[in-house]
Design a protein around this nucleic acid. Structure first.
Lengths: 225, 225
DNA sequence: CGAATGCTTCGGCCAAAATCAAACCATGAA
DNA sequence: TTCATGGTTTGATTTTGGCCGAAGCATTCG
């Protein structure tokens, strides 16, 4: 009895609605201040502050103090992956939030997941990279030589990514599509490239991403079948 | 705000130590009675009964009534995968159970994960299947023709598996190795085949699996580099 | 230097939920 | 049938933990 890692602590951490809201908000990848997160979670500032301390203590989020603000973000890709896994299970159980509106549809189409592209578009892009032989197919994802050339042509400074601390390529299970999409610093860079091409814009609040007509055209031209 | 699936409910479900213990016990794949689970969770029978009802309601476990017993098991591979994901994160945070003894070592070496082989041995087997071209390398795992012949030679009745309801091949992220191993009905069948070859035996209580000398030899001969 | 803003800490309040004893069903055995 | 066993339900108790107001730091601005 009582074998393996103790899962109840982190699960309990995520199990509070307020904290879950905070985490979901942080999935957008942007760093948010304590006040913003309090608003997001629908809770008073002191309460949110307590939650944030607990989440940080549990290794789910991290906070950087800057001036008189404190910016919180997810602790890392592992935390994001765990949250997506939970969302996947919950959505499989039909435990969607009540009153799923058009916003939910937009999320399934394209959204940001810890700063990389997720949803139908994200999976489509990952599929394209795989079938084109731009990333390896195996257990560990990696760029091929052809893939390096491709992303360079797309406007990604690969050498810079490889200097960074985190992994360049990671798989992340998509909760709405139930397939993987590309995470890691390359995933972030590709999303950034699309933003600088003005293909899409992020919803000011939330994770949704909307492609404009030119963006759809460009995306299909590059990543379409 | 408040987008995506509501993760707090299932997380809260797993977040209670008693329920977490129950789930961890069920990861061994065996169906257990309510009394056994109460014992395992260190809680009285009525309490456990309440927990079990909640877990079943949340879609994490399922129970079959047989005579005057009621046997509980994990609801399915998705639930098992979610729990392994949580364990992976927890173990990364150093949130192992206090007092990790030799038992923990045994778990990392080989254990059962919802009835298929996990731990170092499980990952080794999966790696072998992949590098030998017996399963496809892509997003969705599947047996190749050569793979079908291989597992048939190992004593697996493949046609029978394909009749079953669940998927034949699934990836499952291993919390100790941080790599995938093979789940699905084929994973179960392979473990069963090894048991019938008397390569290993399950610890009577818990998830650990121990290979005997002949088992190690046979395993290395088949799945070794 | 105040004054204002952002956040954390402290205190007490309250509701949700875990817990178990005891009573209650249902099944199987004598 | 009567007894025994496994499980659930009920009810009362207790604990946990979220919650906010008020006060306390820290930083920045006027």
């Amino acid at each position: 009895m009582k074998e393996g890692p103790d899962i109840s602590r982190i699960a309990a951490l995520i199990g509070d609605p307020g904290r879950a809201n905070i985490l979901t908000a942080l999935m957008a990848g942007k760093a948010l201040t304590a006040s913003e997160l309090a608003e997001e979670a629908g809770v008073s500032l002191p309460t949110a502050s307590g939650h944030l301390a607990k989440l940080a203590d549990g290794g789910l989020i991290a906070g950087d103090k800057q001036g008189r603000h404190r910016y919180f973000r997810l602790a890392g890709p592992e935390a994001a992956q765990l949250l997506e896994a939970l969302m996947g299970f919950a959505s499989g159980q039909g435990l969607l939030r009540l009153r799923t509106g058009p916003k939910d549809q937009a999320l399934r189409e394209a959204r940001v997941c810890y700063n990389h592209l997720a949803g139908r578009r994200g999976v489509q892009m990952f599929d394209f990279l795989r079938t084109s032989g731009f990333v390896t197919e195996g257990e560990t994802v990696a760029l091929t030589a052809a893939g390096a050339a491709f992303v360079a042509g797309f406007g990604v400074d690969l050498a810079r990514l490889q200097l960074g601390r985190g992994a360049v390529c990671l798989c992340c299970l998509d909760w709405s599509e139930r397939r993987s999409h590309l995470a890691g610093s390359l995933g972030r860079a590709l999303l950034a490239a699309m933003e600088s091409k003005s293909w899409l814009k992020r919803e000011p609040a939330g994770r949704a991403v909307v492609f404009n007509p030119a963006g759809v055209e460009g995306f299909e031209a590059v990543f379409g079948v």
